[in-house]
Design a protein around this nucleic acid. Structure first.
Length: 479
RNA sequence: GGCCUGAUGGCGGAGUGGUGACGUAGCGGACUGCAAAUCCGCGCACCCGGGUUCGAUUCCCGGUCAGGCCUCCA
């Protein structure tokens, strides 16, 4: 295991060494559940899911603890609840359910913990208490503020010296702040808003302290990896870190900080076929989750990713190719009689190299682009084995490809279902009938009739492929 | 104004001081009744100007352009 990760704090790639290999901890900032999340919100979900899978492979499934929080108390949630005339829990439940469903559709494993702010209030209050006791926070006019002057390490994560920040700051400075950069840990609720009893009056927690408390409660401090979108570096993670360090008497908060780049929507509008939408929830109705996952991982996670309709089509095309070779392998194994095929039992060196390249690429700060290239090398090996009619090599290459792709959350579907999944039983029966009729016409060399039937199938959005052992079919893309 | 990224073929996107990944799209050929798939082959890209070097897309400097953060945005 030679995993290297780019650490935002060090501004360099560093070999990953966990505090305790029997208990590896990772925390990623999750969504505020007040609406359906758009596709950009799922980039960190998919990226850190991949890292989660890699860590599980290296340290064991039970040795990795991954917490992804949910912010379920927030101004936007309050506004939405008021608008609909319901309690905030109605809103948060609805969108959290949708979020988790989308996450699963994108092939993300459920995190070990999914802590929620509203269930962490006690821990939040305790942490604020400790910060006050340590001189790192102060109460003022019903608020509690973090005292940025009390922590000399403030600004180290984002690389922003305190005074420079104030010079360019456009933030309004509340009169009760001792220093303009001080931020809220606890604030009074407005009438009608959710509130909790605290030593400083009824109110609710600030955003930053929620995460620190949820981390401490679910994973314990310090943690190994803290992840999130690059936009969170400042102020969110800077503040989290300041709180965490000050609350635990100068112990580092997280050993590694990872940040994913943004998704850009550019000038190219989403095509009509995609419905001009960017909600994962809606994209998933016309595109397999795997294709969306592939598109999200096609470039390096730290770079920006240009999101457009072409990207999805290309991702779908790439997966089609992989699934096609899998389907062909399955057909070969099904149809090849004993004795018909050659049987060599050594794993082909090229296959082994491709596998090693795949793992090495992922372990090199999640170089998914290079890892994907290795997948295609395995696919090429598999294709060659099929053409050689070498059953042992087919099995070996098929297994390797499926296993490695599976590690990254791909090729989870049955190959046949991938191509035919969009058809219901009625359509399948109809297709079967038409294919039988067409076979008969072809046997009689009645080409006009065979072509007529194919046209009929095309009208049903079905593509026919004649092979040596009969015709196969698949559902075509909606143009 | 401050801080920080990035600029690679039609598109997406790795990587490297010297044999131009990979995918997708396109073209030619083989195969096929015709197609599809598959196989073989092709397009010969690295923002601009300097510098270092035997040699730079890759390192350094400058410029241009694009984007991000400095506002409880992934």
């Amino acid at each position: 295991m030679t995993l290297a990760l780019y650490d935002t704090m060090a501004r360099a790639k560093r070999p990953f060494v966990p505090h305790d290999p029997r208990r590896v901890t990772m925390y990623v900032c999750g969504p505020t559940v007040y609406n359906f999340s758009h596709i950009g919100n799922f980039r960190p979900v998919v990226v850190f899911d991949l890292l989660f899978r890699l860590l599980r492979r290296a340290y064991g499934e039970d040795a990795v603890l991954y917490a992804a929080n949910v912010t379920d108390v927030d101004d936007k949630i309050n506004a939405k609840a008021t608008e609909e005339g319901v309690g905030i829990e109605v809103i948060t439940e609805r969108y959290l359910t949708a979020y988790n469903a989308d996450m699963a559709a994108l092939g993300a494993l459920p995190p070990t913990f999914q802590p929620r702010a509203t269930e962490t209030i006690d821990a939040i209050i305790l942490m604020i208490d400790r910060l006050i006791a340590n001189g790192a926070a102060y109460a003022a006019e019903g608020h509690v503020l973090f005292n940025t002057q009390a922590y000399e390490g403030y600004g180290k994560l984002s690389g922003r010296p305190l005074d420079e920040m104030i010079a360019g700051a456009r933030v309004e400075v509340a009169p009760y702040k001792r220093h303009p950069a001080d931020f809220v840990l606890w604030k009074p609720s407005k009438p009608g808003e959710p509130s909790w009893i605290s030593p400083w009056g009824e109110g609710r927690p600030g955003w930053h302290i929620e995460c620190s408390a949820m981390i401490e409660e679910s994973l314990g401090l310090p943690i190994d990896i803290h992840g999130g979108g690059i936009d969170l570096v400042f102020p969110h993670h800077e503040n989290e870190r300041a709180q965490g360090v000050c609350a635990t008497h100068d112990h580092e908060y997280s050993a590694y900080w990872l940040h994913n780049g943004f998704l850009n929507f550019g000038e190219t509008k989403m095509s009509k076929s995609v419905g001009n939408v960017a909600l994962a929830h809606e994209l998933l109705q016309t595109m397999p989750g795997e294709a969306i996952r592939w598109a999200l991982l096609v470039g390096h996670y730290r770079g920006p990713l240009e999101w457009n309709a072409d990207l999805l089509d290309q991702a779908k095309g790439a997966l089609d190719r992989l699934y096609r070779v899998l389907a062909d392998a399955d057909r070969f194994l099904r149809e090849s009689g004993p004795g018909l095929e050659r049987d060599s039992d050594v794993e082909h060196p090229a296959l082994r190299r491709a596998h090693e390249g795949f793992i090495a690429a992922l372990e090199d700060d999640l170089n998914t682009a290079e890892a994907f290239a290795s997948l295609f090398q395995m696919a090429d090996q598999l294709r060659a084995a099929i053409m050689d009619r070498d059953a042992a090599q087919v099995r070996s290459a098929r297994g390797r490809l499926a296993k490695d792709a599976g590690l990254a959350g791909f090729l989870r579907a049955d190959p046949e279902a991938w191509f035919q999944g969009a058809a219901d039983d009625g359509l399948k029966a109809r297709i079967g009938d038409l294919l039988t009729a067409r076979d008969a016409a072809r046997a009689a060399k009645d080409w006009p009739e065979a072509d007529r039937i194919r046209a009929e199938l095309t009208a049903l959005n079905v593509e026919v492929m004649d092979g040596p052992s009969g015709a196969t079919w698949r559902i075509k893309e909606q143009a």
